[in-house]
Computed example of a mutant assay.
Amino acid sequence: MNLRVSLVEDNLTIRISLMDMLTDLVDARMVGIAEQQADAVQWLNEHSDEWDVAIVDIFLKRGSGLPVLTACARRSPKQRVLVLSNYATPEIRTRA
Rank of each mutant, 00 (worst) to 15 (best):
M1I: 11
M1S: 14
L3M: 12
R4F: 00
S6W: 07
S6C: 15
V8D: 01
E9M: 03
E9Q: 08
D10L: 03
N11E: 15
L12P: 08
T13V: 13
T13E: 14
I14V: 13
R15L: 11
R15H: 12
R15D: 09
I16L: 14
I16A: 12
I16R: 15
S17K: 12
S17M: 12
M19G: 11
M19E: 15
M19N: 12
D20K: 15
L22V: 06
T23C: 11
T23S: 15
L25A: 13
L25C: 13
V26Y: 09
D27F: 11
D27P: 09
A28D: 03
R29F: 04
R29T: 15
V31M: 03
G32C: 06
E35L: 06
E35H: 10
E35C: 10
Q36R: 14
Q36I: 07
Q36P: 01
Q37G: 01
Q37F: 00
D39Q: 12
D39R: 08
A40N: 03
V41E: 07
V41C: 09
Q42I: 03
Q42P: 00
Q42D: 13
Q42N: 13
W43D: 03
W43Y: 06
L44N: 01
N45L: 09
N45Q: 13
N45S: 10
E46H: 10
E46W: 00
H47C: 03
H47K: 07
S48R: 14
S48I: 10
S48E: 13
V53D: 00
A54S: 10
I55G: 02
I55Y: 01
V56Y: 00
V56C: 08
D57G: 02
D57F: 00
I58D: 02
F59P: 00
L60R: 05
L60V: 01
K61H: 08
G63Y: 00
G63P: 02
S64D: 05
S64M: 01
S64V: 00
G65F: 00
L66V: 08
L66D: 03
L66P: 05
P67E: 06
P67Y: 02
V68P: 06
V68H: 02
L69R: 06
A71N: 09
A71Q: 09
C72H: 08
C72V: 09
C72D: 09
A73W: 08
A73M: 12
A73E: 15
R74G: 15
R74Y: 11
R74K: 14
R75L: 07
R75W: 05
P77M: 06
P77Y: 08
K78S: 15
K78A: 15
Q79I: 10
Q79Y: 05
R80M: 12
V81A: 11
L82K: 08
L82C: 11
L82F: 14
S85R: 05
N86L: 09
N86M: 11
N86H: 09
N86P: 02
Y87A: 12
Y87I: 07
Y87D: 12
T89Y: 02
T89H: 05
T89Q: 04
E91V: 11
E91L: 11
E91K: 12
I92H: 06
I92R: 04
I92D: 06
T94C: 08
R95C: 06
R95L: 12
A96Y: 01
